[in-house]
C-alpha cells in the first residue's frame, strides 16, 4: 500500500489534535507515515500509534524552530522524493499552509488548502466564500499536497490490531546520526517504526532566522482553530474588562476565546483571536457568539461551525439567522446566569 505522509504538528512533543485528525483521514487513503520535525518524538510515539501511524520519519534537530517554514518544506520534499507517497497531508494552519506552499513549488505538485473532506480517490471537499459554496477538487499534477482544515474531520483511534511494518530503507542516512531506538517504547506502540530522515538543512532554507518567540497565550485554553468549542465576544462586550466574562464562560466550557474585528480594533482582545474573513476560520462543534452582530465578514470565519449559539440583545441582529439556539437579551444578565447553571449542572453530575 502506498504511503501517505502526514506532517505532524506538535508543541515540543505534545501531538496536536489536528495531527490525529490527519492520521484518521490518512488511514482511509493508504499507509500513514508521520513526518516529525524537531525533538519529542519518543514521547509522542504512543499517541501516533494510537491513531494508526505505521512509520515515523524523524528529523530531530532543534533547528526547525530557528528558521521560518523553509526547513520543514525541505524535509517533506526530501521524503516525497525518497518515499514516492500517494499524497502528503498537512494541517491548514498558518504554518502548515506555508509549508505546503513551498513544498508545492519544490515538487511542482498541486496543492489544495482548507480541505474539509477527502475521498479514497483523493477528491477533496472545500467550503468557499464563507461556506456558501461547497467545491469538489482534485490535484492533477505531481504528488497531491492536501492542507486539511482543523476540526473538519473527527479523530478516531485506529483499531488495536496494528501489523508490524517493515523497516523503511532510507538512502543516505549518515552513519553518525543514530536512528531513534524503535525498541525502547515496547508497549502498544511497538509496531511503529521510527526512522531518521537524515536531513541536513540547506543554507538557503535558513534565510529568515527566528530570533525571538513571544507567547501571548492566555491561560491554558485550547488553540482557537483546534478547539471543539469557541466562545467569541464582539462590540457588545463593551470593554477589555468585559472580556473577562467571555473568558470565564469559555473556561467553564473548556473552550477557546475568539473575538470580532470590532472588539479587536477597539483593543479589547489581541488580534490573533480574531474570527472572520481577515482573521481565523474556525469550524468547531459549538460556536457561541456573544454581543456579535454577524456581519458577513465575521460569518466568513465561523459559518461552518456545527452548532451555533447566539446571545445578543438586538432581535434583528443577522447572527440569529445562523443560530441553532439564540437568546435575545443583555449578555451581562444571560452570560453570568449561564455560567452559574453550567457549574451547577457539572457539579451535580459529579
Amino acid at each position: 500500500m502506498a504511503e501517505i505522509l502526514v506532517m505532524a504538528e506538535h508543541d515540543g512533543g505534545a501531538v496536536k489534535k489536528v495531527t490525529t485528525e490527519l492520521l484518521t483521514l490518512a488511514r482511509g487513503l493508504g499507509e500513514p507515515a508521520v513526518v516529525w520535525a524537531g525533538p519529542g518524538v519518543t514521547a509522542a510515539r504512543d499517541r501516533l500509534a494510537e491513531f494508526g501511524a505505521a512509520k515515523v520519519y524523524v528529523a530531530a534537530g532543534s533547528e526547525f524552530d530557528d528558521y521560518v517554514v523553509a526547513p520543514k518544506a525541505e524535509l517533506l520534499a526530501r521524503l516525497a522524493a525518497d518515499r514516492a507517497p500517494a499524497a502528503i497531508l498537512v494541517a491548514a494552519t498558518q504554518e502548515g499552509r506555508e509549508v505546503a506552499a513551498r513544498l508545492a513549488v519544490k515538487t511542482g505538485s498541486g496543492v489544495l488548502t482548507d480541505v474539509t473532506g477527502l475521498t479514497p480517490d483523493l477528491t477533496a471537499e472545500q467550503q468557499i466564500f464563507g461556506g456558501a459554496i461547497t467545491v469538489r477538487s482534485r490535484v492533477r499534477a505531481g504528488v497531491p499536497i492536501i492542507a486539511v482544515r482543523p476540526n473538519a474531520v473527527a479523530a478516531v483511534p485506529a483499531l488495536p490490531a496494528a501489523v508490524p511494518a517493515a523497516v523503511p530503507a532510507l538512502p543516505a542516512v549518515p552513519a553518525a546520526v543514530p536512528a531513534v531506538p524503535a525498541a525502547a517504547a515496547a508497549a502498544a506502540a511497538a509496531a511503529v517504526v521510527v526512522a531518521d530522515a537524515g536531513l541536513v538543512i540547506s543554507e538557503a532554507a535558513k534565510a529568515a532566522r527566528v530570533t525571538g518567540r513571544v507567547r501571548e497565550q492566555r491561560g491554558e485554553r485550547p488553540q482557537l482553530t483546534e478547539a471543539a468549542i469557541v466562545v467569541s465576544g464582539g462590540r457588545g462586550v463593551g470593554s477589555a474588562e468585559g472580556f473577562a466574562l467571555i473568558e470565564e464562560l469559555a473556561d467553564t466550557l473548556h473552550a477557546a476565546v475568539g473575538a470580532s474585528r470590532a472588539a479587536v480594533d477597539a483593543g479589547w482582545y489581541p488580534h490573533q483571536f480574531q474570527v472572520g474573513q481577515t482573521g481565523k476560520t474556525v469550524s468547531p462543534q459549538l460556536y457561541v457568539a456573544v454581543g456579535i452582530s454577524g456581519a458577513i465578514q465575521h460569518r466568513a470565519g465561523m459559518q461552518t461551525s456545527k452548532t451555533i449559539m447566539v446571545i445578543n440583545k438586538d432581535p434583528e441582529a443577522p447572527i440569529f439567522e445562523l443560530a441553532d439556539y439564540g437568546v435575545v437579551g443583555d449578555l451581562f444578565d444571560v452570560v453570568p446566569q449561564l455560567i452559574g447553571e453550567i457549574r451547577r449542572r457539572t457539579q451535580e453530575a459529579r
Binding site: 508545492a104 498541486g110 496543492v111 456558501a132 459554496i133 461547497t134 467545491v135 469538489r136 437568546v327 435575545v328
Partner: peptide, 20 residues
C-alpha cells in the same frame, strides 16, 4: 496543477430556536 470537478451551494442552515 489543481482542478475543480464540481460545486454546489450549501443548503441553508435550518432555522433554530430563538427565545427572549
Amino acid at each position: 496543477a489543481t482542478e475543480v470537478t464540481g460545486f454546489a451551494s450549501r443548503p441553508p442552515r435550518q432555522a433554530g430556536t430563538v427565545v427572549t
